[in-house]
Structures are given as structure tokens and as C-alpha cells.
Design a protein around this nucleic acid. Structure first.
Lengths: 245, 245
DNA sequence: GGGGAGAGATGCCGC
DNA sequence: GCGGCATTTCTCCCC
């Protein structure tokens, strides 16, 4: 595919809000939050109708360069190349993609009003703890979930029935030192705000690293093993793999 | 484009390690770290030679669903659909893309041996502080950079000339509460390891949030304004935008 | 392989 | 818009 075809495709796609995908040989420069340069190679270029730009190398699931939606886009014809400029003034970011060859390109108008339905996040987990308080301790009584403080929100807040306040921090994956930091910050804030030293800290997660457990113990907090709930997990069970490549 | 063509393209691409891009109408199910479902709509499907899979909606710069490289891929023909299965046993993750229509598709062999060259990250910043210690304080003497402890590494470690140890934590963006937590953890660790209370904590960043500054002060630590160095920032200055769409 | 932390993190929600 | 934080975070580095 030559430059003229690519240029016309890109122009038409931009005008009519199509998405563009292209296999190109290119080099890439970026300046914004950092400065990057990527020498010439074959990549996948993706331009969406919201004027976001993605550049993917042949390996890896993360784009090597990108611009968020809302960029100003322009094409410039150079010597033996065509340059896609993307400028995001609000973010003070610039991306230049110098395309030396176009191996193939497509554009398409896309219709999609759907939103992702997700189960098994941390909010589901704190919901579950609120509805199953016994997992935290025999007398645990939840008062609030996602209680706002000025240093962040407490996942589950309650008391143990004998007047002692309980702060629960949830993690849906193995808890690390930063989770203990977070819990400590909330407990200190509650102690100060309520004028009491009677505040227990509980870290609820499926697992915890040894260092985090040691720090937790040194602060007098408790670990409580809880797995994140996955409400839709039936569908993938016992699925059969047919037509293996 | 019909299913037979798409199926043949996909088969051939898999066999010869091509990348595939396609505009498809599809629904998507994922089960792994969480469970997700996405109802039918038009999306961009990307399958790379490393067997990573990306699904992009028309908007946004982040894929709505994905699988990392190393998945097992298979195609299954169903009623009015063709299903791409991706299974990652090590991660216990499964992705099913049910394709109802193929608006267009391409495959291509890609050659790319280049790696991204980046300037302006936090390591550049701690390098710069080590080489320009006066920015931390008049008598600051750096000893080590990225000093390893069992609770993380200290960005810059030194003393102030009068025997007091100094721990510097760098952030390349506005420092928040978690940066203060990190600094506190390192200072406590150094106090314990060296058996002294004479340890100063310094947070170096271009800015700091009010809450973080308050917590920093309450711990007796200091803030020090430092901007991250960008060594390649010349290229993007004064660039002209030609051929605006 | 696990732990810890940075990332051009991104995106969401609450104030 | 800022602040705080989860993320199917991802990736890198070091032990």
C-alpha cells in the first residue's frame, strides 16, 4: 500500500469518525510526562474515533507508545515518509509517528454502546464482608462501607460489640507493605478523630507477604484470610476446547 | 468478509506467526482474576504473534479485555458465530470472543528488534539528586542510590555532615500520602537497623498534596522541591503542525 | 519465583 | 479539578 492510499484512508476515516488500523514500518518520538524515542521497526498503529492513538510492537500486551483521546491529529508528508502528529495541549504532550512503509491498513465505522460487566473487584469484597461479618470475628458489627475520611476511604468500618472500633482494609490480591501502611493511616486517623486509643486494625485479603505480616503484627493489627467473591464464575467451568490450532 | 475467510486468515496467521487485526461484532467473556462479560458490539480485535489478545472498544486507550502472551489459542465454529478461545493455564485465565460478523481483517508478519529509549523517570531523578546533592540541603552528602532494604529500596541515602543520616524518597509527580508512608517505613527501618534515632527523612518531588505535607510535618520530615530531568526534551520544542485535518 | 515499587501508569469516584 | 485509590493493573529489578 502506498502513501497516497494511506493518506486518503486516514483523511476519510478522520472526517467520518472511523477507526483505523495499520501495519506500518515507523519510528516514534514522544514528549510529555517523559521523553521517549523508538527506532524504526514494524508495528501496529491504531487510531480510534476519539482521537486516541496506540502503537503496538509485535510482542507484549501493553502499547509501546500512545496518546489519550482528545489529541489533535495531523498528517504531514515528508521525504520518504508520512508523519502522523498527535498533540494534546492540555497534557502538554506530543507524539510523532514517522511512517516509512504501509504494509496494510483498514478503516471502519464501529457501533458499540455496551459497558463491561465485572465481578470480583474489591468493592464486591467489602460488600461481602459487610454481609458476612463473622469472617472478621465473632462479635464484629459493621457500621459503614467505604467510609470517607480525608486520608482515603475505609473499606469496612465497625465495632466488636464491646465498644472497640474496628477498621478493615480489604485487598483482593496478596496484601503487601503498602496495604499495612494504608491500614495504619486509617487507624491513626480514627483514633485522632474519635479521641480514643481503642481502635483495632484488620487486614482482609486472600494472602499476605511475610514482611507485611511482620509489620502488621508489630503494629498490633490482625490478618484475616478472605477470598474475593466471583459471582459469574460458572460460565468458564468445564468448557471444552475444540478446533485446537 | 465471511467466516471462512476469517478462519483461514487466522489459521494461516497463527501457523506463520503473523499478527492479526480485525474489526468484528462480538461478545466477550473472561474468567481469571475476575469475571467479566461484554455484550455484543463492534470492536477491534488484535492477536499478536506471542499469542497475546487485545479487544478494544471504539473509545478509550485501554483494552476492554485482554490476555497476556503465552495463551493457548483455538477457533471454534458455532451457530452463526465463530469463537476465539484463549486459555492461559499458568494464570488460570480464560477468554472467549464470540465473533458474529467480520467487517474486515488483516494479517502481517512484523519485524521489530527495537526497544524504547526513555528519559525522565524516577531513576534519572535520583541520579540527578546524587550528582546535585545541594538541592537537598547545604551539607548533604550522598552515600548510596537505590539502597536495598528488606522493606524496599531507598532512592538516595546519605548524611548531613554532622552525623545525622538522611533518607530521601523521590517522586517524579506530585507526592501523595503513600509517598510519606513509604518514607516513614524506610526511616523506621534505618533507625532500627543502625540503632539510632538520628535519621532525617526528606521527600523530593515537584509538588506535594496538602494532606501529604501535613502528615510529613507531623512526622518531622521535610519536603524538597525537585523537578524530574528530561534529557531529550529539545526535539519537540517549536515543532510546526502542518496539514491539519 | 516472590517481593517491592515505578509507571508517560489509567480510570473511577467523591469532595 | 484535585485527591485518594483500585487495577484482570503491567513491568522491571533484585533477592
Amino acid at each position: 500500500m502506498d502513501f497516497e492510499l494511506f493518506e486518503r484512508l486516514a483523511h476519510d476515516a478522520m472526517r467520518s469518525s472511523h477507526a483505523i488500523v495499520a501495519f506500518v514500518s515507523c519510528e516514534v518520538s514522544y514528549s510529555g510526562r517523559a521523553e521517549t524515542f523508538l527506532e524504526r521497526g514494524d508495528r501496529i498503529l491504531l487510531v480510534k474515533p476519539d482521537r486516541s492513538v496506540l502503537i503496538h510492537q509485535p510482542s507484549g500486551s501493553v502499547p509501546v507508545n500512545y496518546m489519550k483521546g482528545g489529541s489533535e491529529l495531523s498528517l504531514e508528508r515528508g521525504e520518504g515518509r508520512i508523519v502522523l502528529h498527535a498533540a494534546h495541549k492540555a497534557e502538554r504532550a506530543w507524539l510523532d509517528v514517522s511512517v516509512f512503509a504501509v504494509h496494510g491498513a483498514l478503516s471502519q465505522r464501529l457501533e458499540d454502546a455496551q459497558r463491561l460487566d465485572l465481578a470480583g473487584n474489591e468493592r464486591d469484597m467489602s460488600d461481602w464482608i459487610r454481609d458476612n461479618p463473622r469472617c472478621i470475628g465473632e462479635g464484629f458489627r459493621p457500621i459503614a462501607r467505604e467510609e470517607q475520611t480525608d486520608v482515603g476511604f475505609i473499606d469496612v468500618f465497625g465495632h466488636d460489640g464491646s465498644g472497640t472500633l474496628v477498621v478493615v482494609e480489604c485487598k483482593r490480591v496478596t496484601a503487601s507493605l503498602s496495604a499495612v501502611d494504608q491500614l495504619r493511616r486509617y487507624v491513626e486517623r480514627v483514633k485522632r478523630a474519635r479521641g480514643t486509643q481503642q481502635v483495632r486494625g484488620v487486614l482482609a485479603a486472600p494472602a499476605i507477604t511475610p514482611n507485611a505480616l511482620e509489620m502488621l503484627a508489630s503494629l498490633g493489627f490482625a490478618f484475616c484470610r478472605v477470598d474475593p467473591p466471583k459471582r459469574l464464575e460458572r460460565w468458564a467451568r468445564d468448557q471444552k476446547r475444540l478446533g485446537e490450532f
